[in-house]
Amino acid sequence: MSISLIPSSTITTTVPPPPLLRPPLVETKLFSRRNGVVWLSLIIAAPLTFPNSALSFGISGPKEWLRDQKKKTAKYLLAPIDASRNILRSAYLLLTKAESDFGEKELEEFQSLLKSAARDCVPQERSSFVQFQSSTGVEVCTFQLVVKNASSLLADKDPVKLAAETKLIDLIRSFASLSDMANDIDVQVASNRQKVANALMDTVTSLDNFEQGIKECLEV
């Protein structure tokens, strides 16, 4: 019996491809005070893409699809507003729980809470770095970024957009007035603390009105 050998030159071996490399997982912290601004900035700057089904089959137009996407992400746009409201409530409790003992420590904590709730929207309360960013044309006011994103599908003269922008102005003025009062008035006096508390609740009302304006822009 003869055995035919296959020439070695015709023998091929299949080398399995290397395993796909997975990018490392990166943990993200949602809506920290600074991350929230970056996230909103990326949304505004990101290029718009449309689903093929909407364009090919006419299920919905690009603008309608984008409007639906904004509705789905509404909770993220509203998150900074809700966080600021909670901070103001904490500041109110700090201000009103003290019957007579409201010293420098309590005052510093109260002013820090107000600054945090304002989210870099009061110019005189900004840090030097944030002030530098603003001077270079970078939008640093979180609430302004919220308005820009929520109203991006609306015309410049749209009444809903104009109403939201007006409510933003009222909100910033309210924060500025509250900050000035907290810095200028002697809050160690009980009657003065009550005045500041009343002004704080007025700011909460302005924040609620602003939130309603954003919801109207998003149609939620």
Rank of each mutant, 00 (worst) to 15 (best):
N35Y: 10
P24H: 11
S112F: 00
V204F: 05
S128D: 08
E104F: 08
L48F: 13
P23H: 15
R34T: 10
L55H: 11
S128T: 08
D82N: 08
D170E: 14
I185N: 03
Q188G: 06
A45T: 12
F102D: 01
S90H: 10
S90A: 07
A46M: 12
L42P: 00
R119M: 12
V220Y: 10
A54K: 09
D156L: 07
S179P: 01
V220P: 01
K115P: 00
R126C: 09
L30N: 04
S56L: 14
A150D: 08
S127P: 02
L171T: 07
Q194K: 13
T203N: 10
N183K: 15
I43S: 14
N198C: 02
D101I: 02
D120C: 08
V140R: 06
A176E: 12
Q144S: 02
I3K: 07
S152R: 11
A164M: 06
R34P: 02
Q194G: 07
K215H: 12
L178C: 09
F31D: 01
D158H: 09
D186P: 04
V187G: 01
G58N: 04
L168H: 13
D158L: 08
E219A: 12
L154R: 09
I214A: 05
A150E: 10
T28I: 05
Y92K: 07
I59L: 09
T205S: 13
K105G: 02
K161G: 00
A163L: 04
T73H: 14
L207H: 05
F110A: 03
G58A: 03
W65Q: 15
P7D: 15
I59T: 11
L93R: 06
L168N: 04
V130K: 10
K148T: 09
R193T: 03
S84F: 12
F175L: 00
A164C: 06
C217N: 15
L94R: 03
P24F: 11
V122A: 04
D82G: 03
V196A: 05
K161S: 00
N35K: 12
F129C: 05
G137T: 05
S174C: 06
R173C: 09
L21F: 15
F175Y: 15
T136C: 03
K97G: 01
L20T: 15
R126N: 12
V15I: 13
L77F: 05
S90N: 04
A74K: 08
A182S: 07
V220L: 14
M1H: 13
D208E: 15
V160E: 11
R193Q: 04
Q133S: 07
V204P: 00
S8E: 15
M1Q: 13
R126T: 08
L48T: 14
A79N: 11
R22M: 10
L25H: 08
K215F: 13
V146R: 02
F102T: 04
N52M: 14
V187S: 01
